[in-house]
Nucleic acid binder design. Structure first.
Ligand code: FES
Ligand code: FES
Lengths: 141, 141
DNA sequence: CTAAACTTGACCATTTTAGTCAGGTATGTA
DNA sequence: TACATACCTGACTAAAATGGTCAAGTTTAG
């Protein structure tokens, strides 16, 4: 059970972006340098963030990305969803009536994993980009 | 972020075992049939559970496995640890002072992932095999 | 007009996962 | 004592996921 770097980088990059986007759009190049993430990889990630309306892009020289929402309204859930970082604890398809073993009933641990998934998602729903900014300022002082 | 089937099967098999081990040891063959898990794969898993003193084995005809502890004392944490199902949210080495980007300080999201890891582990520490048995009985009624 | 920066899509090496396979060894029962 | 049952061990591997790179654009400020 581990986090993929896609989700990790997405959050990292957005925190960086949120810090600097007050004045000008922020270029991926800058984020790449500051956070040590490959530029090509960042492009993939931001393409998805844009499709999900979390950021806006500005083309041309001096272009870059800016947030499309208030940091307080961008939850980790939104970010993870955007870059396909899925929380998958159950093996079966949730909608299906069949269990993961192919039987007609759900397996004996199905409810447990479902509970776990809710537990984790709760964490993500309660964290916004704003929280991370504050948190980071605190630890800086 | 997903659970591997090693962890999932381990818990599934142990719940099955806990239900039937009152009278006789339970053979992997039976668990395999009831839960639809490959026998060869179960053997790998139980080898680890045994090394970690979660189950005991009885060889020969009519042999099988029995729990080595009270179901109330077997937490999900113990099971996951035994089969190497690790929760890995941070990228960096925790003990190291360096960040995941190779820099001298921890990255701006490190604290967040650490918090997440604690959040998940709390869930596992508070769930015992006993809870799962009860839970399952309840949903059966 | 040109350099900076976004855009798109194909491609790929490595690692992890989820097992299988092939041999054992121990022991209760007939 | 034979033999079937069930544990035990380690090597092997196909398929999927991961974590990127590479190439070839388009857009626009200056
Ligand atoms: S995880 Fe849903 S049926 Fe097993
Ligand atoms: S996750 Fe620990 S430094 Fe980035």
């Amino acid at each position: 059970m581990k986090l993929t770097s896609k989700g990790r980088y997405a959050v990292m990059a957005l925190v960086d972006l949120a810090r600097f986007d007050n004045i000008n759009p922020v270029s991926l190049r800058d984020i790449s340098l500051r956070q040590g993430i490959s530029l090509d990889y960042l492009e993939q990630i931001f393409s998805k963030l844009k499709k999900n309306e979390i950021v806006k892009s500005i083309r041309g020289t001096q272009g870059g990305y800016i947030l499309n929402k208030n940091p307080n309204d961008i939850k980790l859930t939104n970010i993870f969803h955007a870059v396909d970082e899925k929380i998958k604890t159950v093996q079966c398809k949730k909608e299906s009536k069949r269990g993961c073993n192919g039987k007609a009933t759900k397996c004996i641990t199905h409810n447990l994993w479902d509970e776990l998934e809710i537990h984790i998602n709760t964490f993500f729903e309660n964290k916004s980009l704003k929280d991370l900014l504050n948190n980071n300022k605190e630890t800086r002082v």
